[in-house]
Design a protein around this nucleic acid. Structure first.
Length: 414
RNA sequence: GCGGCUGUAGUUCAGUUGGUUAGAGCACUGGAUUGUGAUUCCAGUUGUCGUGGGUUCGAGUCCCAUCAGCCGCCCCA
């Protein structure tokens, strides 16, 4: 049988409805905050991601869909979008002024990963980025927007966790202290952590191994090694969030996987789906724009996986079928022709009506309507045609009344 | 990339130490009711047993490969 490519799925039915609802909510909330949408290409030159994501990350090493195009240039299907957005900002010279750029994106990303539930090789992300503001205020504004978005989707069990990962200048001192700590109890750490401590020491902090978490008791805190400006930044953000009534929790072991993050790092945890797990993450990445060849520009942002979000909404939604508009059921050839003409008039007035065009008999048409979740059937037979009415049946209540043709659009809106 | 588990009807599953024609619920189709669904009653169809090969007189069952999915890592969020 014909099959989709492994790890890539078709979206339709209730899941597609969940995706649309998420996207609609995102666009509405982001527009309120003044964010504009940006769509960048799926394909980018490999360099864009190799330079941004960092060599210690597996995203670059083994998870990218990378190939040569017909011009023998190495391209990849984007594994994430921040680097591509930055590339676009630089290319269109939008960072040459001091104007802030507030952007969001919605689209598919690609990583060649091992499959698991809610984890696909083509997966969807929504993200928001702010360029040109280095302040905690811009972070607080962005986080409020994020929570308006998530709460607008009906998610309630949300927890914001916060940390500061410092700057490239302040990090070496922390690394030195951390390595000393690690070496002193080296035997208690797992093999993965021995590898991590050399490549990316911060990664040891979020090792899932229980022994490692125990061994980490009393470890040096990144926040104790911050420079004064970073410390003030961190404190100010906490004041702002408290002031906004946005509850948060500090997590000194919270780190970011990608190299370009600076200062603020955060995650949002949700217990809506079983055990509490990270729903999204983000933070500040002041060095990335310059690193990719643009003007030195501060930036802050986050990205959330749409597939997992849709999974949570589906769990909340349950098996409920999506309500459908009214179904217009004509009886016989004459009514069938008239039904289309009438429906066209109603559509023009904004009514939502679907027309039964199979020529099914009434019994079959009503069976179908019921099964597909229609709330109302509009029956049009020769008798109704003569009187200029439809027999409007409420499928839930089982009641039926006559509606004049002209009043159908208005009555459907009730 | 590493380790493990699962694949039988549209779907959820049963199928004995390998044995003849592979079953059930739900769903679906038709009828009771030619213009009234969802409830009720009656009847009926579900099929490349994931795919390919092997062992065997005989394979849904055993072996190998492969594909797909699931779980845990790696990684990410």
């Amino acid at each position: 049988m014909a099959q989709s490519v492994k790890g890539m799925r078709d979206l339709f039915g209730p899941v597609m409805g969940d995706f649309q609802h998420i996207e609609d909510t995102a666009r509405r909330v982001f527009a309120q905050h003044g964010y504009g949408e940006i769509r960048t290409p799926i394909l980018e030159y490999t360099e864009v991601f190799k330079r941004s994501v960092g060599d210690s990350s597996d995203i670059v090493n083994k998870e990218m869909y990378e190939f040569k195009d017909r011009g023998d240039r190495s391209v990849v299907m984007r594994p994430e979008n921040t680097a591509a957005v930055v590339r676009a900002m630089i290319e269109h010279k939008l960072l040459q002024t001091s104007d802030p750029q507030l952007l969001y994106y919605i689209g598919p990303m690609f990583r060649y990963e091992r499959m698991q539930a809610g984890r696909y090789r083509q997966f969807w992300q929504i993200g928001a980025e702010v360029f040109g503001s280095a302040t905690p205020e811009c972070e607080a504004e962005n986080l409020v927007m994020l929570f308006d978005f998530l709460q607008g989707l009906g998610l309630k069990q949300l927890k914001l966790t916060l940390n500061s990962v410092g700057t490239p200048e302040s990090r070496p001192a922390f690394y030195a202290a951390f390595r000393a700590f690690f070496d002193a109890r080296e035997a208690q750490f797992c093999g993965d952590c021995h590898r991590r401590v050399a490549e990316n020491p911060m990664r040891v902090l979020d090792c899932k191994n229980e022994g490692c978490q125990t061994a980490l008791q009393g470890h040096p805190l990144i926040t104790d090694f911050l420079d004064d400006a970073s410390r003030a930044h961190h404190e100010r953000l906490k004041v702002l969030l408290t002031n906004l009534g946005l509850p948060f929790e500090e997590n000194p072991r919270l780190v970011r996987g990608l190299d370009y993050y600076t200062r603020t790092a955060f995650e949002v945890l949700s217990s809506d789906l079983g055990a509490q797990s990270a729903l999204l993450g983000g933070g500040r990445y002041d060095g990335l724009v310059k690193h990719l060849g643009g003007p030195d520009t501060p930036a802050f942002g986050w990205a959330i996986g749409l597939d997992r979000l849709a999974m949570i909404l589906a769990a909340v939604r349950g098996e409920q079928s999506v309500p459908r508009p009214a179904l217009l059921i004509p009886m016989g050839e004459k009514a069938a022709a008239e039904a289309l003409r009438l429906a066209r008039g109603w559509w023009a007035q904004g009514a939502a009506v679907q027309v039964e065009t199979r020529g099914a008999n009434l019994k079959k048409a009503l069976q179908t309507a019921n099964r597909q979740g229609f709330t109302r059937a509009l029956i049009l037979g020769d008798g109704e045609l003569e009187q200029g009415v439809v027999a409007a049946k409420d499928l839930a209540a089982g009641t039926q009344e006559s509606w004049a043709f002209a009043e159908v659009p208005a009555r459907l809106k009730d």
